[in-house]
Amino acid sequence: MSEIPAGLFYTEEHEYLKPTKEDGVYVVGITDYAQGELGDVVFVELPDPGEKFGRMDTFGTIEAVKAVSDLYCPVSAEVLAVNAALDDDPALVNSDPYGEGWMLRIQVKDERELQELLTAEEYAKHVAK
C-alpha cells in the first residue's frame, strides 16, 4: 500500500500539493503511488524559479529507466524555488516523495483553485480503481 498523507491536495495525475507555514505558499511533488509505478527515477526536469504556470500546465518531466511522464502544476502558480538536490539524486523521489523528494515551492495565485483538487480520501479511491 502506498502512503497518502491526509491534509495534502492531490491531482488525478498523481501530483500532490502540500501547504507550508507561509501564506499561499505550497510544495509540489509526486505521490508515493506514482513513484512506485514509475520505478527507479533517473532524471527530473524542472523549470526555473520565476516561471508561471496555469492550472494543470506541464511544468516538467520525470524519467524512470524505461518510462517518462509529464509533471502537472496542480493550480495556477509562480515557481519560488525548485529542489536542486534532485539533479544529483533523483532517487530522492523514490525514497522520500513527500519530504526530500519535493519538486517545486510555489506561490499559489488563487487558493479557490484548491477546491478542484482531490482530498487524500478521494485520491486513495482514485488509485484503487
Partner: peptide, 9 residues
C-alpha cells in the same frame, strides 16, 4: 538514457 528515444517517448 532510453527515455530520449522513440520506443519510449
Amino acid at each position: 538514457l532510453q527515455t530520449r528515444e522513440q520506443h519510449i517517448r
